[in-house]
Structures are given as C-alpha cells and as structure tokens.
Design a protein around this nucleic acid. Sequence first.
DNA 1: GTGAAAGCGCTAACAT
DNA 2: ATGTTAGCGCTTTCAC
Lengths: 346, 346
Amino acid sequence: MIFHSSTALPTEAEKYLSIGVESMSITIKDVAAKAGVSVATVSRVINSKGYISDQTNQKVKAAMIELNYKPNIAARTLQGKSTATIGIIVPSLENPLYSELFECIEKELYKRHFQTLLCTSNNQIQKEKNYLSLLEANRVEGIISSSHSKVLEEYKETALPIISFDRKISSKIPTVRGDNYAGGKMIALEIVKRHKKNVLILSGSKEDLSPGNDRIKGITQVLKEKRISFTTAALPFERAPIVKKELAKKAINMDTFDAIICTDDLTALIVCDLTKKLTTPPLVTGYDGSSFIRAYHPELVTIEQPIQEISELLVELLVQKVEHPLIELEAEYVLAVKLVGKSEFN
Amino acid sequence: MIFHSSTALPTEAEKYLSIGVESMSITIKDVAAKAGVSVATVSRVINSKGYISDQTNQKVKAAMIELNYKPNIAARTLQGKSTATIGIIVPSLENPLYSELFECIEKELYKRHFQTLLCTSNNQIQKEKNYLSLLEANRVEGIISSSHSKVLEEYKETALPIISFDRKISSKIPTVRGDNYAGGKMIALEIVKRHKKNVLILSGSKEDLSPGNDRIKGITQVLKEKRISFTTAALPFERAPIVKKELAKKAINMDTFDAIICTDDLTALIVCDLTKKLTTPPLVTGYDGSSFIRAYHPELVTIEQPIQEISELLVELLVQKVEHPLIELEAEYVLAVKLVGKSEFN
DNA sequence: GTGAAAGCGCTAACAT
DNA sequence: ATGTTAGCGCTTTCAC
C-alpha cells in the first residue's frame, strides 16, 4: 500500500517492517499462522460459519485481536460477497434539507448494517456523472439519488437499483417525494387567509424536473382561482447566498408586495432579512421545513416535508429492490406535507 | 451479487440473465472477449500503461462503452493498488460548521482524485468506533477526524495516517484548528469594548478535549483581567435544540445579564431567539462563523473559523502523510480566527 | 472439526 | 504490441 510498486520487493517491505513501519496490512494468513490453524478456519471464525471447536474459536479470536486484524473488504467483495454499501447522491449539504436527509438515511442504513457512500454533486453535471460511475465501480448495492435533470440518461443506463428523491428520473425508477402540488396550494391558501393582495413568487431556476415546478403550479392554481394578482420571478437557487440576495433585491423592488412566496427556505431567509426593516414587511413564505429551520426559525411560514418518513421509505424501498431485484414498486410515493410556522398574522 | 449464494449455480445465473436481469457484473474478461484481445491488453487500456496500438485501443474502448463496463475497484485494490479513499469522521452534519467542513474537504479531495467516505458518529462512542474499524476494513488511505475524546485509544492503535480537526488525539497525530484561545479573548474584548458588566458564559458540555475549553480560558482570562463579573453555566451542546432551549431558559433567568457568551453559533441562535423580546436584549455572541451563519445571520457577533483554509490544510497534510509515511509533521497547526458580525452596538 | 485448493477481477511481470 | 500467468485476501467446496 505504501511502497511504490516498482521497488516493492518483499525484502524491501520486510526491511521497512523491521524498522517499525508496520503498515503492510495484516491478512488472514498472519492470523492463521499466529493461531496455528489454516486460513479456512480463520474464515469460518470470521463468518461464524460451519463447525469450529470452542478451543480453536478462542485461539483465532485472540490472534485477531492481538494483531488488530480487520478483514479486507475488497477481498470478500471480490469473491462475491455483497459490499453492503449504498450510494447517496445529493446536490449539496449547504441546504439543511439535504444534510438532514443524509443524516436520516445514514441512520436508517446504519441500523440495517449498510455503509453509505455520500456523493455531493454541487450541481455540477460532470461531477454527478463521475460519482455515479464511481458508485458503480465500487459495486454499491444500490443508489438513492436527488438527481440533476441533465444526468438522467446515465441513471437509466445503470443496472443498479435506484430510488429517487423528489425527481422523476424515469418510469422505471421509483420516486419518493413530498406532495409539492398540495404544498403549493397550502401556501397559497395561507396567503388568501391573510388577505394578501399583491404577491411575488420567487421560483428557483426553472430546470425541467425541479420539484419547484409543481409547487408553483399549486400556488398559481389557487391564486388564480381566488383572483389574487401575482408576479413571478426566477431566482437561481443554487447560487451563492450573496448573489441570490442581490437578485432578490431587484425582484422585490419591482413593486410593493404584501407577500413573497419562495420555493425554498433559504431563499425565504434572505428575503426576510431584506424586508424586515420595511415599515410593513410582507409575509414571506418558504418551503421544506427542515428541522434546522423549524428549530432556529420557528416563525417562518413554510411547508414541512416529512424528511424522516421520506428517508425511511427511501431506504426501505431500496433495500427491497436490492434484495428482490424483480420486485415491482410503485412509480411514485407521495407523502403528505404540512404548513408550519407563525400561525397568526405576520 | 444478487443471487443468494446458496443456490447461485452458474446455470441459475444464466437463466436469470437470459430473461433479462443483466445484473451480473461485466468483467474485464467480457470486454476482452468482445474486443477480441486478452485481458492484459484491456488492463493496459484502462490504465493507459505500456504499448497499445491505436487500433486495439479503439476496439477496446468501444467494447467497454458498449458493455457499460466499470472496472471493479475491489479487484484492483486487492492486488495492491491504492483505494484512493479518505475517511472523514465528524459528529454530525446538523451543525453547519461540520457540513461545510465536509464540503470543503470533499472538494479538495475530489480535485486530487480521492474519494471520500463520510462517517457521522452522532456523538455515539460505539458508532465512532465501528466506523473507525470500517474505515480500516475498507483500506482507506487515511483519516480526517473530529474525534470524540472517548475513542482516543482506538485512534492510537490505528496504523493509518490520521489528521485531527480541533482536538488533540495524541502527540503523534497532528491537529489542525482555529486559535480557540485567541478567539475567546476576542469575544471577551468585544464584551469589554461594549461596556458590558454582567456576563453569562454558556459553555458546551465539559468534555475533556472539547475545543470549547480553550475558548472559555481565553474569555475568562480577559474578563478577570478587566474585572468584569461573569457566571458560567454548562449546556450539553450535542442535545436536541428544544432541550437546549429549555436549559438555556433556566440559565438565563438566573440573573439579568447584559451579555451572553455561547461557545457555538447554534446555541447563540437559540439564546438570541429567547432574549430578543426583552426590553433591553443582551449582547449574544457565538462561535464558529460558518458561511451559513455569516450568510443567514450576518448580524450575529461570532468568531469566524477559517473553514476553507482548515480544510485545505487538513487535506494537504493528510496527503503528505499518505504519500510519505515517514514524514515528520508539526503536532499542531493553529490558524488565525477573526471576530465578525454587527460591528457597532447590540 | 479442519485443511487444501480453486477462483473472484484485476494488474504486472515475463514471454513472445 | 500483445498474450500468458501468478497472485493480491478472502470464501467455499471438497477431502480428510
């Protein structure tokens, strides 16, 4: 591992070893030698498989501990064992929605003795493709992805089980998501309830599969029905906060709004900050309702996605698919969302 | 991978294959067969090593693409190649300090063509131990850890290169951190500058190696020097926000404070929320100054740790240690911090 | 109850 | 310029 292979004669390795750099991995052979048994026996102990006498068992275990032996996962993977690894692809952890999603998924997988391989794409298409490839090369058992719309083809080519969060990748790949359309409607109804008359809708960038689109549909549907006038402006939501702030400023100054609807919480926080000094600050609403936002900005009116349940379902479905590849799953699993935040006036 | 090994006869596999479940991995042999060359040649193409005619190169690459072939990382690891994987251990991603630290480290490693294996310990000692073991079993090249103090022994036993963030694990393991003592002093000096007279210090749990301890030292040093009276209360900072809120309430009500010093930003946000309705809200200070906090709570007086630089240094040092195991590094790398936030009054 | 040996996918001599 | 083959660490028949 450490020696440049060009010169890695065994003697060379031994030389280093003798001066105390004990970095050559301990293998099953070393354990077998120390315990005075065969590698097969050690393997049996590791996997608690087949018959082993108590005495041998003890000896081997002692040897493993003494040598601080860790079975080489690569080797067992190679000979056909599962890697017990699940890949997770998210755009970024800056948004608490995703860091919480990851944490929940990781906890769920940990319980089930899977390890997780997290990949953050940072909204870079090439990076996401590279990571997807990497997950395949690592022989993960399956993937949970919150994919970028421009990487769909690569997902479709994969033979691996995939479950998607919030975005429809293909009809073959199940999606788990909050009910964006209903969430949009809830927001709009709250606007109505509070007698707002002039609404600004700050949507994220209008990428094809963006979950924001359904939210906007729900919102505008209700606003139109109730004949409330609204303006829409797009705000590239993956940009740095400072950029978004400047863009938001412009949009806000277009007119005097008494409500500003944002399609995610972080944008909402920026807008809140921008408008709170106004004599009559508008109602600002967000979307996602991560527990971070709920804890540290409890007053923000937003839609709470059930991240915990979403995560559990994502994992449950993926594990099912991993264990029973031929299983038929629904195309979409839509979970209920709810309005939260300061319930009275603004 | 998919077949329960007990019944996974080749014929069984082939049967499944023929009905279209093409989940058995494509190997270098398949590629070689399709391209009409030997496995060695394919290997050469994969690694761009040795002589290969243009024509063969083409053929092989075409075959790889057609079969959607991904080299099996386990196999190449097994025969001695580096896994090119670095393990990262952090307590949790809920705190933006850690999610940003991870993102920065990941970007840095990605540039250098390393993959990262993230492990979140959730402050559970056993979980951290398990993950440490897992990283070894996965044969990662090295580890960046923000360790719990009760897992030190396990770290010391590891032969892997380790760099620690913010906590001194042992004299053998280099630590990279912000200057906590200086940061503490800066906070206290700000308190002095603003003529605060009665200070509450909310420290995190007093775990042995907590970076908070040095911060407290810096703070109290200055306060004592300037003869400003202060009270200290401990607040288990890894608890859920709601719990912390209740505990903070109690502490705050002990007296009437005109300044409350918190040893992390999240606690500070809670305290801000708790005190902002008071007629004369105290000055509340935090610690960490992640870019999330800087972006969404620019007014918070806090100490900004240079997360970007810390990450770069962590990675640089680790890579050095991985490539030159015998290299001698400093025991500690202490980076300057700075006071940020609303600069005038409170 | 335990050992010997084949083989997983790949790379790196060594042949040719 | 390309093929043959041994062997990485491990599991798993198959013998004993």
